[in-house]
Design a protein around this nucleic acid. Structure first.
Lengths: 189, 189
DNA sequence: ACATCTAACTAACACTTGTTAGTTAGATTT
DNA sequence: AAATCTAACTAACAAGTGTTAGTTAGATGT
């Protein structure tokens, strides 16, 4: 039984390094040194540097896709769906802040899976957009520019990976509630 | 008179490539090919790859610092200051979407100027935070978690470089007004 | 006209890159 | 006990990296 945990360790360590310096700036020797082994030994567990990136990004992208599907199949108000999306992002991001850096910054270095990744992303954005459009038509959401709202929400959610690690003790419920209030009701009194 | 425009062309072209692939993934040969010359010829105009990154990032960071200083020295309400900051980001970003990618993603590859950059960024964030704190104390802004508000606003503003290029005809005033409404008053009805 | 400057070139360097081949000590399976 | 598997190793390679040295055709200044 080939140990999956060693492989997982390598991928997680790689994700940390990728977050610090970006995919292209991290060498297999960097990764090996951090793992306490020689570069060539990595290849007993993974088949290429590319594969590591693929594992990190695609698994996360699919998690988002699955989460969005669940939310979209539920019968809730548009506002409640948005709150669920906010919770989804906090949830996935807090479990893997390192990987989220690659998802955000290094997706363009995917080779074989670039097109698949872009499909997932486009579909996710379309689902998100449709929730906003639906909310406007049902008078739950203001009739401002949809794209500006979408961009603003997604930007904040996609940047969570930069911020969550700085919070010493993450209270999931509290952050989710605060962020929902701020994104949905704004900050003015 | 050594032509400054050729040097500027190189830096702007580099910024474009850095946005597409990141600083580390762009080689001097890539840059030279895009400029229609050989890699060695670049060195008649710039002294190193590092220097190009420095020029791109530091000049932008200083623009933000100057803008923040002006806003902070004005006698306005906290909400108006926030609106001015939003306009500042749209303004600087729309003039240099390529460079903003480096500022956001490649600052860690600054070498000599890394500390200086981090100082500018910390000061900027502190000024931003103080405006929020002031707004709360003057009852203009809700008494929610300051860091969450700061993070949410900054995330959206820092991501503008990804989004502004997609808008076919940028109406500065309209975007500024829409984004201010969404960030300050939220999206719910 | 001559000297200098500009902005390109070719050739090369020393180093780093991802990756492969072949080996080996120790654990596990038969 | 023998055979296989695991996960590390050393050595090496071909390609690519940023950069320097030296050269050159043409423009500019005196």
């Amino acid at each position: 039984m080939k140990s999956e945990t060693r492989r997982e360790e390598i991928i997680q360590t790689a994700a940390q390094l990728f977050k610090e310096k970006g995919f292209s700036a991290v060498t297999m020797r960097d990764l090996a040194t951090t793992m306490g082994m020689k570069a060539a030994s990595l290849y007993n567990h993974i088949s290429s540097k590319q594969e590591i990136l693929k594992e990190i990004i695609i698994s996360l992208a699919e998690e988002f896709t699955n989460g969005m599907e669940q939310i979209n199949n539920s019968n809730q108000s548009s506002i409640q769906k948005l709150k669920d999306i906010i919770a989804l992002h906090i949830n996935i991001t807090s479990k893997n802040t390192y990987g989220m850096a690659s998802l955000n910054n290094d997706w363009m270095h995917l080779e074989g899976q670039l097109q698949y990744y872009l499909e997932l992303r486009t579909n996710y954005e379309n689902d998100f957009r449709n929730i906003l459009i639906d909310g406007v038509s049902k008078n739950e959401i203001i009739d401002s520019d949809i794209e500006t709202m979408l961009f603003s929400l997604l930007s904040t959610l996609r940047s969570l990976y930069l911020w969550i690690p700085k919070k010493e003790d993450l209270n999931f419920e509290e952050l989710s509630k605060n962020l929902s209030t701020i994104l949905i009701s704004g900050i003015n009194k």
